[in-house]
Design a protein around this nucleic acid. Structure first.
Lengths: 330, 330
DNA sequence: CTGAAAGCGCTTACAG
DNA sequence: CTGAAAGCGCTTACAG
């Protein structure tokens, strides 16, 4: 395949001029530009980007570590990242890690071996996390408190507090929780908000009211079994994400319970579908697209040499009240 | 970050020796190897793979163009490709094209700009196809007849003929078709087999018995509406893939029809789930994993300089008879 | 506006 | 077994 040297010979101009004609045409005379372009067409020249990357010591590629490519909230983060990347001239590689450390390692390796410039991690930081690694520029997006490297997120505890507080204000006293996995940092932060709200309302924490899910629709559906068999049933369910809330509503319907007439249900995230579920979901909106945009922006700035001012960027969440909740009437 | 030069200085050995210690340790004395490894550990050296790729003029990466990442048959092709790639030491990038030409272009561009060595195309060749392009080493996998570049596939016409023939042999005379999109080459090849089987049995082709789908489960479910309203209903349905067959069975059940007692249904592909559907599906098995393996093998050989002997590798299919069909009894 | 030259980090044929 | 040197295809500071 043709190289820049071939184009140089064909056009009768130096390699330097050909290079400039391609990347900075304004530095080159019209006549030269024309000759270069003719030669390029004739030879069907395509620049060798591996060489270019090598020369510039920059790949203009970032890797996004995605625990689950099928998760709708991640999709919104990714779309924010991709839009910003396009604006900055970066490519995005999606690393579908399935939450497996060895797969994460493979993708981090791309940065360590300089095949990519940086990483956005969508998984909350935990103690066995491979990041941060001083050689790898990384940003954590939509994670949790106590992330030891740059992170962009909402205040999960505060958000959980707000939604549970809303249920309490509506008169609910028995509020069940469908949580994420017990050791998940999101579960931890959101559970804290739940406890704070109860405490403030002088309601004792009840272990029977907490059932563990794993953030999938299926686990939400399944969790309903537990509450159904309780003697003293909750009048509202706080689900730690929308998918589980939608699963729970499905499960409740199957048992002949009406939402919100018989039981209120709240979610977390505000997926697009949550507005179209039946009933539309009361939930907390995490600004996924904006978190993605901000994370990408910060990463690109770091790659380009500007250290960000903060280590945490906390974006605002929003309580979205729809029709899956209603006041508890004695 | 440390370079090979730093390791050379740290170990007191030449760059050449360090390079050899890393890629061909058997060429280096034990003593040197030890010193190099110590230096690597101390400096946390990771080789710059962009530089290596550039130097070797080889990326050891191939791109697989996948029209739909969620399609189960493609998943089997991909797994065959990935296994073979691992064996040959290649990386696989999945290009989720969503059947959009501009997205295909982006991924083909990776090869044209030497960021990847070759392409496997999972989409059947059609007249606006971007491939073949003389600069890009490519193999078509699981495509159709008349592909103008190297392809690995089954004989779709023959396979469709066989399954329709089977239905005819079972006494069916009125055989409906749920096809793919009319202009899809797979649809064309498989339709030909259907017509050939009818003709051989002296049955006139009936336009009312053909309904267009798009290879999704949903389109199969939907197609059932059409047949249900027919006065002279088919006694068997030939679906051009398993997903549509499974959708069709779902639709038939919803209408209170039993498969196979009231109507026989056949698929095409033999997905893993087709053995677990209710009833298990009679279908044609395309050897997806094997097609993927063969395609990858041929591509790697081409990249390494060996031109394949054939332009078409036709693998055997298999008629799999399960419980979604039964003889038509007058 | 243009060209000669250095150099990015590696690998490998060559000489010893 | 080891090292000096060339070179992969580009970009860019420098000189003119």
């Amino acid at each position: 395949m043709a190289t820049i040297r071939d184009v140089s010979k064909e056009s009768g101009l130096s390699i330097a001029t050909v290079s400039r004609a391609i990347s900075n045409p304004e530095l080159v005379s019209k006549e030269s530009l024309k000759r270069v372009n003719q030669a390029i067409d004739k030879l069907q020249y395509r620049p060798n980007l591996t060489s270019q990357k090598f020369r510039l010591q920059r790949t203009n590629t970032i890797v996004v570590l995605v625990p689950n490519i099928a998760n709708l909230f991640f999709a919104s983060l990714i779309s924010g990242i991709e839009d910003t990347a396009a604006k900055y001239g970066y490519n995005v590689l999606l690393g579908d890690t399935r939450d497996i450390t060895s797969r994460e390692k493979e993708f981090i390796n791309l940065v360590e071996t300089r095949q990519a410039d940086g990483i956005i991690q969508l998984r909350p930081h935990h103690k066995e996390s491979l990041l941060p690694n001083c050689n790898v520029k990384a940003v954590n997006a939509a994670g949790c408190a106590n992330t030891p490297y740059l992170s962009v997120r909402i205040d999960n505890t505060e958000a959980a507090y707000k939604v549970v507080k809303y249920l309490l204000d509506q008169g609910h006293r028995k509020i069940g929780v469908i949580s994420g996995l017990k050791d998940n940092p999101h579960t931890r932060d959101r559970m804290l908000g739940y406890r704070q709200a109860l405490q403030q309302a002088n309601i004792a924490f009840n272990d029977d009211y907490v059932i563990e899910g794993d953030f999938t629709l299926w686990s939400g559906l399944n969790a309903v079994q537990h509450f159904a068999q309780l003697k003293d049933k909750p009048t509202a369910l706080f689900c730690m994400n929308d998918e589980m809330a939608i699963g729970a509503i499905k499960g409740l319907k199957e048992k002949g319970l009406r939402v919100p007439q018989d039981i209120s249900v709240t979610g977390f995230d505000d997926l697009e579908v949550s507005n179209y579920s039946d009933p539309p979901l009361t939930t907390v909106r995490q600004p996924g697209v904006k978190i993605g945009e901000k994370a990408a922006e910060l990463l690109f700035q770091m790659i380009e040499g500007t250290e960000p001012k903060l280590i945490e960027y906390i974006l605002p969440f929003e309580l979205i009240i729809r029709e899956s909740t209603r006041p508890y009437l004695l």
